[in-house]
Design a binder for these strands. Structure first.
Length: 836
RNA sequence: GCCCACGUGGUGGAAUGGCAGACACACGGGACUUAAAAUCCCGUGGGAGGUAACUCCCGUGUGGGUUCGAGUCCCACCGUGGGCACCA
């Protein structure tokens, strides 16, 4: 009795499944793993004679929460491409690894006392399991982990090369410090918020502090990082963000003498042509000459202003709505072009960190200067007039125009006037053409434990590189994870590690999380190599000719990872480690998946979708298919749990094309699958589908490819019997999307080999061209009729046929035709004379 | 404020300047079933007319423009999302 009841439950559970994905998915995952189906061939191995294709995912930080549907979207897309390219005859490199250093693991350790190594390992195991359950075709023999000493040895090695070439240095500079995270952060890791700047991770408030820190000279690569954006196939928005971040501006530095002083003040301007309009000079409050130039009679007000400025938060200083403030410091500068005496002010609208920290103010042609001059009653002198004299004259004109009241520049358009002025300044030795970048050097040290140690030892106050043969510098084990108060690095407590027998002291900062991800795509090529970061042969094969062929990941890394990695890559190119100027040729950002309520998925909204439950209910193939069917890959789109039904029903239909249930309710191969050729109509539809799916896969337009396969399956379902050849082609086309189901059906149909390398079908051109087509007949651009007729009809025959149709006759009756538009094989449009 | 992307049915979305709404969800109807689920078939932008097969009008954020023809191209505006923000 009990037994029968249990059986009944079992049976009803079974019958609720539209097809037995719970049985076939683990089966094929095990098969792929046991047979190393997705191992990519290295140069020299069989398979490497094929053209290579490198399709890369942004590797995840293995958090405690596991994978979310956003990860799965990008990974599914790249997996579909990887599987497709394999079937197209490419040797595909599709690897996965773990970006496992970083703050969350360390914060967890602080909270629980569990070593980050342990939680990291646990999280990685969990991620690996979830990824395997999705049936992604990664080559697991190439798995990497940034926290593995065999990996970070090479991260340290790259740092050493940077250090030895003067591209890594220690400097004291005002840097962002986060009290909550107890570490400094890079400019790129700071976000604006209504309450002031906050950390990207955790959104904690951050503040400026002057600290001694490691910096990487990314600015030395500014020009190449900007120019080489033209070499890559990336979304324009990401390129634009990087361009803005690098912020190139071209202009001139000009030296102003100071009346009665030895000192000169250098200013940077993008408008040297307006030099005759300069009516005062402004220094940033932090400018080094402020103290010396201030006259005794102004000392008191100046110092009060400086005190005020330092007390102000960055938020207050950058608040655009605020009125500009500043004070006159009593000094006068001499304008080099006309020897005019102009006052010197300090004001916090001038930033110490950009250009030279000083500007010439031209209120007639700069909004900010104009606002300041108006407030303090400073003179405004027009030296550029608009090109078009009809334009109403305005008090402040910042556009390009024609120089006036500027002696030797008069009459020159702005671009020429700039050139003329720069030439004049250079000739007189008063200034020179200068290019400035907004990009700053990369703040590279963190006061944290869970990161790569620097391969640096301090001796007599000097930083010395650890010899390459001593790498890796191992991260010492640790029991306590509380960071020290006051910005000291946790590693400084490890005296036995820090203090060397010869009196040297190890650097106790660690590298930022971005370090490991700057070059991981290279390590996949040659993960076990302990002599080199990557061997030349592997690098040439997999990275040639343009680097990673396809890189899929989130847009949130636009100016962080993607800029840093380009910088390191260019450096590695310069020292001969890599052979391409850019690492990632084609970049695609998957759009964010929103919660079902249309809001961003977040714990606080309670709208996070957990993939585990979906996998149990629908299986991996359905989840894969649905993630792709949601909409265009790059678009932001809301999740819909109801929507899963569509792809699920579709897969079940495909299943039932080949399978049927016997009397006991077991799935058995369907009897009566026809081995005869399918009717022509079906064959035509199949070949249109082959063409559409192939084209769409090249363009990553997965949702339209799926829609086309649905059309084919709907047609096949309506046929009384299935056709073996059509079914097999369909299974091959669908296999990149739903690999488990397709492998199972492929083997049911009698194939012994895995589908993974089955050749991709070719569309037969003869079945793509139709002899007959539906013509659209318009009158005055409105569709009034359609007719089925030959595709290659000439205009006269088509026109005659169209005119013969009664509904068209009715529309044309009594009207005179002005002209007829003829689109061969498609359309006729009768354009009538307007009614009088 | 500046830069970039995007606005199409109840919903997700489709559409080399040439049939707007493919495909799917949801909804409605039917077949099968004792019944339900599942499955299969049909319908589904809005409006008007017709017993009917059907016919006509309107419709892709708003307003203009180019064109024989505009969701698609151009101009202006409105809205949404993202980025930058006193960078001289």
């Amino acid at each position: 009795m009990l037994w029968a009841a249990a059986c009944h439950v079992e049976a009803s559970m079974e019958s609720r499944r539209a097809y037995p994905f719970d049985r076939i998915e683990p089966k094929w995952q095990r098969f792929w793993e046991d047979h190393a189906i997705f191992r990519a061939s290295n140069p020299g191995e069989p398979g490497a004679e094929k053209p290579k294709y490198y399709v890369l995912d942004m590797f995840p930080y293995p958090s405690g929460r596991g994978l979310h549907v956003g990860h799965l979207e990008g990974y599914t897309a790249s997996d579909i491409v990887a599987r497709y390219k394999r079937m197209r005859g490419f040797n595909v490199l599709h690897p996965m690894g773990w970006d496992a250093f970083g703050l969350p693991a360390e914060q967890h350790a602080v909270a629980t006392g569990i070593h980050p190594r342990i939680t990291t390992e646990r999280n990685i195991a969990n991620f690996r399991e979830q990824i395997a359950a999705m049936g992604f075709s990664y080559d697991w023999s190439r798995e990497i982990n940034t926290t593995d000493p065999r990996y970070y040895r090479w991260t340290q090695w790259i740092f050493l090369q940077l250090f030895c070439r003067g591209l890594a240095y220690v400097a004291e500079a005002p840097v962002w410090y986060c009290p909550a995270l107890q570490t400094v952060l890079a400019n790129e890791e700071i976000l604006p918020s209504p309450a002031g700047p906050v950390s990207e991770r955790g959104h904690y408030p951050v503040e400026r502090r002057p600290l001694r820190q490691w910096m990487l000279r990314i600015t030395a690569y500014a020009e190449r990082l900007l120019a080489d954006l033209d070499l890559v196939d990336w979304p324009e928005s990401i390129k634009e963000m990087q361009r803005n971040w690098i912020g190139r501006s071209e202009g001139a530095t000009v030296r102003f003498g100071i009346e009665g002083e030895e000192h000169t003040v250098e200013i940077f301007t993008t408008r040297p042509d307006t030099l005759f309009g300069a009516t005062y000079l402004v220094l940033a409050p932090e400018h080094p000459l402020v103290g010396e130039l201030t006259r005794p009679e102004c000392r008191e007000t100046t110092e009060a202003y400086l005190r005020d400025a330092t007390r102000k938060s960055d938020l207050e200083r950058t608040d655009l709505a605020r009125e500009k403030t500043g004070v006159f410091i009593g000094a006068f500068a001499i304008n080099p072009v006309n020897r005019e005496r102009i006052p010197v002010w300090i004001a916090d609208y001038v930033l110490s960190s950009y250009g030279t920290g000083a500007i010439m103010a031209v209120p007639a042609h700069d909004e900010r200067d104009f606002e300041f001059a108006s407030r303090f009653g400073l003179p405004v002198r027009t030296v550029v007039r608009p090109k078009d004299p009809a334009d109403p004259p305005s008090e402040c004109f910042s556009g390009d125009g024609v120089a006036c009241a500027s002696q030797f520049l008069d009459g020159l358009p702005t671009p020429e006037a700039k050139r003329a002025m720069i030439a004049w300044l250079e000739e007189k030795g008063l200034g020179k053409r200068t290019i400035h970048y907004r990009l700053r050097d990369w703040l590279f040290s963190r006061q944290r434990y869970w990161g790569e140690p620097f391969p640096i030892v301090w001796r007599n106050g000097e930083a010395q590189p650890v010899p390459e043969s001593d790498l890796p510098v191992l991260l010492p084990e640790r029991k306590e994870f509380f960071p020290e108060k006051g910005g000291f690095a946790p590693l400084s407590q490890e005296r036995g590690w820090v203090e060397l027998p010869d009196g040297g002291l190890r650097e106790t900062n660690t590298m930022p999380q971005w370090a490991g991800s700057c070059w991981y795509y290279l390590r996949y090529l040659d993960p076990g190599d302990d002599r080199e970061l990557v061997s030349r042969e592997e690098e040439r094969y997999w990275m040639g000719p343009q680097g990673v062929d396809l890189y899929i990941g989130g847009a949130e890394h636009a100016v962080l990872h993607l800029l840093y990695a380009r910088f390191w890559h260019k450096f590695l190119f310069d020292i001969g480690v890599v052979s391409t100027p850019e690492p990632f040729h084609r970049l695609v950002n998957q759009g964010i998946i929103l919660g079902e309520d249309g809001r961003k998925m977040s714990k606080s909204f309670g709208n996070i979708v957990n993939p585990e439950g979906l996998l149990r209910q629908y299986g991996a193939d359905t989840v894969r298919l649905f993630e792709m069917f949601l909409g265009p890959l790059e678009q932001m789109k809301p999740w819909s749990s109801q929507g899963l039904e569509g792809p699920h029903r579709f897969l079940a239909r495909v299943w039932r094309l080949a399978m049927e249930e016997d009397a006991e309710g077991r799935w058995v191969p369907r009897s009566g699958i026809s081995t005869e050729g399918a009717p022509e109509e079906i064959r035509r539809l199949l070949h249109r589908t082959i063409r559409k799916v192939s084209e769409d896969l090249e363009q990553l337009s997965f949702h339209t490819a799926i829609a086309q396969m649905m059309i084919l399956v709907n047609a096949l379902t309506r046929e009384p019997i299935p056709f073996r050849d059509v079914l097999e082609s369909l299974i091959v086309l669908l296999s990149p999307f739903a690999p488990h189901l397709c492998e199972e059906l492929w083997s049911v149909l009698g194939h012994a080999e895995s589908l993974a390398y089955a050749p991709w079908p070719e569309a037969d051109p003869r079945l793509l061209t139709e002899a007959e087509t539906e013509w659209v007949i318009q009158v005055n651009g409105k569709v009034r009729s359609r007719m089925s007729a030959g595709v290659d009809l000439g205009q006269e025959e088509a026109e005659a046929l169209a005119r013969g149709r009664p509904e068209i006759e009715a529309w044309l009756e009594g009207k005179s035709i002005r002209k007829v538009i003829f689109v061969p094989g498609k359309l006729l449009n009768f354009v009538l004379d307007q009614k009088p």
